[in-house]
Lab assay of single mutants.
Amino acid sequence: MATGGRRGAAAAPLLVAVAALLLGAAGHLYPGEVCPGMDIRNNLTRLHELENCSVIEGHLQILLMFKTRPEDFRDLSFPKLIMITDYLLLFRVYGLESLKDLFPNLTVIRGSRLFFNYALVIFEMVHLKELGLYNLMNITRGSVRIEKNNELCYLATIDWSRILDSVEDNYIVLNKDDNEECGDICPGTAKGKTNCPATVINGQFVERCWTHSHCQKVCPTICKSHGCTAEGLCCHSECLGNCSQPDDPTKCVACRNFYLDGRCVETCPPPYYHFQDWRCVNFSFCQDLHHKCKNSRRQGCHQYVIHNNKCIPECPSGYTMNSSNLLCTPCLGPCPKVCHLLEGEKTIDSVTSAQELRGCTVINGSLIINIRGGNNLAAELEANLGLIEEISGYLKIRRSYALVSLSFFRKLRLIRGETLEIGNYSFYALDNQNLRQLWDWSKHNLTITQGKLFFHYNPKLCLSEIHKMEEVSGTKGRQERNDIALKTNGDQASCENELLKFSYIRTSFDKI
């Protein structure tokens, strides 16, 4: 039985969820670079991206490699990797027998973001014989899940209580170790020597080791999670996991709180800001991140802002960003909400898709409305799209047979046209069989910064309504002859009103 693990408890099935942008060198404390989270699957090609990484700022997932063999891993080693800020997950990587050479110096898994409450997941690794993470000293947050690894031993010899604050939620089941077939031998045991430290858990006094050649490092209890030197002297209180010299914040392997210019500090002093819960960055760093993602459509890219001495992905609820200094300031009234469309555009074809934009005031991208039916549609669209004030790209209304009016965009005031449909149009209306009105132009103002209007096959939309939009939106004169079809717009509506004058002759039985 794995020490510190839980057996036999019912657990939810383990679901495996399925960018080499360097964020800056980590400095003297770390020998390499800070790398983003990685999802490495199918083959070993991307694994080489770990070569210079000291910190993975995010998670590391290595999974679904069915053609790899043990010899493929023999020359692979990433000794610079010290810390993973989120979680480490391995799933069905064939041929991998140990992690001792792959990650010989991995010391800390912070667990800032977890995989279903777990910071370390080893699942269905069919050839893994031992973990071998002999320098792993601290899992700051989260638990361990090690399950269905039929060859995995050296679990009962690990004292997880020396690595985690609590072992109650560890789930370590259905491994070879369960069948008591392992016969784990710690260093020196074969020669009758006791080389590794022994600890007591559940009444068992057991030597602690990761492999037959690597003991588990056990520091004096007084050192807590700070770690200790090879001689057993406690590291500085700002260290986490390990250090090369005692009581020196510049000799830590990793930091308990924050890293700044080669030393570990309790908090980031001005003019620095907390970033990702582990390091200090200056304003320029946060500003660069903001600008890199301002026009990016890459998933996970955030326009970072500053709030409460932190550089964070977005302002919290009730705050909006001051564009001059990136500071989050309290909103006066309802907060603006910028919604970034991942692929640059979004099609609204149902109430469900409209709900995804609920509360958005600025759309960074283009909207395509293609709704053919739905219950209580006008009210639903207004509830979900009615706060949109600005669209950076274009607005396209296409084959939306259920629409009679666009009044559900009740606050839309600006279409920038930074991206144009077919390279020309910022407003595009095609084949809307029941569209009769755009907006009530006596109450609604709309500016279209650039781009043209396109109207074709809107049989109940009168040309007068379209011409009014040209005047109000500032697009009059931009359109070419064929942009607004004269014969297919309003051709099934009563669009022309003329005053009919009647004269009559009164007659009676005795007068003409």
Results as ranks from 00 to 15, higher is better:
H28T: 12
L29V: 10
Y30A: 14
P31Q: 02
P36V: 03
G37T: 14
G37V: 00
G37N: 09
M38W: 03
I40L: 05
I40K: 00
I40G: 02
R41W: 00
T45I: 07
L47M: 04
H48T: 12
E49T: 14
L50S: 00
N52P: 03
C53D: 01
V55Q: 04
I56F: 00
I56Q: 02
E57L: 04
H59T: 01
H59W: 05
L60N: 00
L60D: 01
Q61S: 02
L63P: 01
M65T: 07
K67G: 01
T68V: 05
R69Q: 10
R69S: 06
P70L: 09
P70W: 11
D72L: 03
R74W: 04
L76F: 11
F78V: 04
P79S: 06
P79R: 06
K80P: 01
K80D: 04
L81F: 00
I82C: 11
I82H: 10
I84Y: 00
T85V: 07
T85S: 10
T85C: 08
D86Q: 13
D86Y: 03
D86V: 00
Y87S: 00
Y87F: 06
L88P: 01
L88R: 01
L88M: 09
L89I: 05
L89K: 00
L90P: 00
L90A: 14
F91P: 00
V93F: 00
Y94T: 06
G95M: 05
L96V: 05
S98H: 00
L102C: 05
L102Y: 02
F103S: 00
N105A: 04
L106H: 02
T107V: 08
V108N: 15
I109E: 00
I109L: 14
R110Q: 14
G111H: 01
R113V: 00
R113T: 03
F115P: 00
F116S: 01
N117C: 01
L120Q: 00
E124S: 02
M125R: 00
M125Q: 04
V126I: 03
V126L: 14
L128W: 00
Y134E: 02
Y134M: 11
N135S: 09
L136V: 05
L136M: 00
M137G: 10
N138R: 14
N138P: 00
I139Q: 01
R141E: 04
R141H: 04
R141C: 00
G142F: 00
G142I: 01
G142R: 00
R145M: 03
I146Y: 03
N149I: 01
N149Y: 00
N150H: 08
E151F: 05
L152Y: 03
L152R: 01
Y154K: 05
L155N: 03
L155A: 02
A156N: 15
A156V: 11
A156L: 05
T157Q: 04
T157P: 10
I158S: 02
D159Q: 10
R162M: 12
I163S: 01
I163P: 00
E168I: 10
N170E: 01
V173P: 04
L174M: 12
N175I: 06
D178E: 06
E180M: 14
E180K: 15
E180T: 07
E181R: 01
G183A: 09
G183S: 14
G183T: 11
G183F: 15
D184P: 02
I185W: 15
C186R: 00
C186P: 00
P187T: 10
P187A: 13
K191H: 08
G192I: 01
K193G: 14
N195M: 10
N195R: 07
N195H: 14
C196V: 06
C196M: 04
P197K: 14
A198G: 04
A198D: 14
V200L: 04
N202I: 03
F205V: 15
F205W: 08
F205H: 11
V206A: 06
R208S: 05
C209N: 02
T211M: 00
H214N: 09
C219E: 01
P220Q: 05
I222L: 12
K224A: 10
K224P: 03
S225W: 14
H226I: 08
H226D: 11
T229R: 08
A230W: 13
E231K: 08
G232I: 06
G232C: 11
L233F: 06
S237W: 07
C239A: 02
N242A: 07
Q245E: 13
P246S: 12
D247F: 08
D248T: 03
D248W: 04
D248Y: 00
P249C: 04
T250R: 12
K251R: 13
K251Y: 09
C252T: 03
N257A: 10
N257R: 10
F258I: 03
D261I: 05
C264V: 00
P269C: 00
P269I: 07
P270T: 08
P270L: 10
P271M: 12
P271R: 14
Y273A: 13
F275V: 00
Q276R: 13
D277M: 07
W278Y: 12
N282T: 05
N282C: 01
S284C: 01
Q287N: 07
S296V: 07
S296H: 11
S296L: 07
R297E: 04
R297I: 08
R297A: 08
Q299H: 05
H302I: 13
V305M: 06
V305A: 10
V305D: 03
I306W: 01
N308R: 13
N309S: 12
N309M: 11
K310N: 13
K310Q: 09
C311T: 11
P313T: 10
P313S: 10
E314A: 08
C315Q: 05
C315K: 00
N322G: 07
S324Q: 04
S324E: 04
S324G: 03
S324Y: 07
N325Y: 07
L326T: 05
L327K: 15
L327W: 08
T329K: 09
P330S: 14
P330Y: 04
G333C: 15
P334Q: 04
C335W: 09
C335T: 04
P336K: 07
